[in-house]
């Protein structure tokens, strides 16, 4: 027999997964636009704003469940984690918006030499795969999948750090590219960090174990 709380928890999970999918879409749109050189600031702004509203809804629903059911154990861990994760999803949206704004102000990857474009593409692919994995692991409460985020995050970190070193050595063609790409890669690195925070929350909600994936 299912419990009264189960229906509300399922509803909350659905809300959060929808939010995750929208966050993935936001990051993906912003990155593709940055790499391909087409403007999408208005659309990304709208998506980012929607994510903030959705986070408020998730928080309200979580508070309602706490007030009505006084959850404990795995139920309580789920609520705590969901509130944290909804914040991480808004950060995905915020960094996606930052990338779109840089694009709008300074131009995107097209301003840069080919080797820089390759670095940005590689970082983008890995970061996007992390965003995707974070949403998937949330959907299935899969702690093992969440733990794999750590490895990809190390790769993104290494790419970022190596890129900064090479940039100092080689000096790119234009200042616009330097500023734009450094900011964009920095935001990618931060998105990857938030993916690992989500991974940590997924491990916690499903096992109670507190891990650090960064």
């Amino acid at each position: 027999m299912s419990r009264l709380i189960d229906m509300d928890l399922e509803q909350l999970t659905e809300m959060l997964v929808r939010m995750g999918e929208m966050a993935h879409k936001t990051v993906s749109l912003s990155l593709m636009s940055y790499i391909q050189g087409r403007g999408s600031l208005g659309e990304v702004q709208e998506l980012s704003d929607t994510l903030i509203l959705m986070a408020d809804e998730v928080e309200s629903k979580a508070f309602e469940i706490i007030a009505r059911f006084q959850p404990v154990a795995s139920d309580l861990r789920i609520l705590k984690s969901y509130m944290k994760i909804s914040y991480d999803f808004t950060r995905y949206g915020r960094y996606a918006l930052d990338i779109s704004q840089i694009h709008s102000m300074l131009g995107g990857a097209r301003e840069c030499e080919n080797w820089i474009i390759r670095v940005i593409k590689e970082m983008s692919e890995r970061t996007l795969s992390m965003v995707n994995a974070s949403v998937k692991s949330l959907k299935s409460h899969d702690a093992e999948m969440a733990k794999t985020l750590s490895e990809t995050e190390n790769q993104v970190d290494a790419l970022y750090s190596k890129y900064l070193d090479r940039l100092v050595e080689k000096a790119p063609a234009t200042n616009k590219c330097t500023i734009s790409s450094v900011l964009a890669t920095r935001y990618l690195e931060r998105i990857a960090d938030h993916a690992t925070y989500i991974g940590e929350s997924v491990v916690y909600l499903s096992t109670g174990e507190r891990v650090t994936l960064r």
Binding site: R3, I5, P71, V72, A73, S74, D75, L76, R77, G208
Partner: peptide
């Protein structure tokens, strides 16, 4: 115990299963 019970029976009891 109320955040992370170690035994499955405890988890089931306190979550009302």
């Amino acid at each position: 115990m109320f955040e992370h019970p170690k035994n499955e029976l405890t988890e089931k009891y306190i979550t009302g299963e």
